Simulated assay, not measured.
Amino acid sequence: MENVPEFVQSFNPVYYAIPLFVILVCIEMVHAKMTGSARFEPRDSFSSLAMGFGNSISAVLFGGILTAWAMFVYQFRIFDIGFPWWVWPVAFVLDDFMYYWFHRLGHTVRWFWADHIVHHSSQHYNLTTALRQSWLSPLTLKFLWLGSVMILLGFHPLVIGIVSGFNLIYQFWFHTEAIKKMPAWFEAVMNTPSHHRVHHATNPVYLDRNFAGVFIIWDKMFGTFQPELDDEPCRYGIIHNIGTHNPFKIAIHEWVSLFKDMRHAKSPRDAMMYLLAPPGWSPDGSRGTSKQIKARWQARVGGEAASGEEVAADPAPQVAAE
């Protein structure tokens, strides 16, 4: 085992960022009160803060398991990369690349969506929304492969933990409506409030777009980028909003729905599809996945345009994903 630098052993960037998170939330609240540039609802914000607190407790409870798995995988690394200076920017970019793909899976595989839906459950979009995180992420077992590729390549688990922490910190600031657009050069490369508002929106044109964590270039490379449109205001939340501020219900509501669907499935195949198919899948297609919602919306818009009727800028879908 190579010598691990002392600062790597003890450094957790997220802990140092927590006071900054609190300060920025307060600043945004004051700014919103003065300008109306962002929307807050006390019960919603409390729920988001409660989810963030629970996520921190979950990280402590499951941290040992995640660390043990990471160190187990590290024994089988292909290269001994160690801790040279260049490992940090390379690991940061690779970690963000991996984040893009696993975030995308979080929207296209219901097993992972049952966990990730927590972050999308608020109908408001402000800095407290960034703190609305799942309590049960380790139970999805995504840690078995999330990061394992980098560990097998030879990146030390502590390096991955640190760069992932900086990735998480970066993602905090763009959960806001107070910032409209960044400079064009920045919008072209980096994830921004405008790009991420699209990701949280339920408008058909915005569904399942902009999965990036830090670098929006991944979405542009892999065909999932959608700019925010001036004539299409974002509607936040999930297709079927849950109508509760109870943190416990927020944490488990989709898990309950998933297992209920599996229990009532008419065949083992249907049960497996409920688990692994995109959110909104059903045997008869009555609910509608994101792709189906988008296709029906596009067909309706195209039909209206072809008939010469005026097309609404913000048509609401009549079918919905879970």
Rank of each mutant, 00 (worst) to 15 (best):
E254M: 12
P157R: 02
I117P: 01
R104P: 01
E232Y: 07
P279A: 10
E310H: 13
S58K: 12
E6P: 00
W111H: 11
L153Y: 09
A68P: 01
S290E: 00
H240I: 14
W185K: 14
N203F: 01
C26H: 10
S122N: 03
P183D: 00
N210T: 04
L141T: 11
G106V: 01
C26D: 07
P233T: 02
E28L: 13
E177Q: 14
I57E: 12
W281K: 07
M150E: 07
K142C: 05
P317L: 11
A316G: 04
Y274Q: 10
S307W: 08
R39S: 13
A295F: 02
R197G: 01
P5R: 13
G303P: 05
H264G: 06
I117K: 03
H31P: 03
R39M: 09
I217Y: 12
L275V: 06
V198F: 02
M273K: 15
P13R: 06
A91D: 02
A306E: 14
R110L: 01
S137Y: 11
P315A: 10
T192E: 02
G54Q: 02
W218P: 00
F211G: 02
N126K: 10
T140Y: 04
H200I: 02
L105Y: 07
W111A: 06
T176K: 01
I57R: 14
I238G: 09
F97R: 03
P283V: 07
A130N: 03
V118L: 04
L24T: 01
P233W: 08
S56Q: 15
W218H: 08
Y274K: 10
R287G: 05
F46E: 13
V22A: 15
D44W: 07
D115C: 13
R104Y: 12
L275K: 07
V205M: 07
P317E: 11
I160W: 05
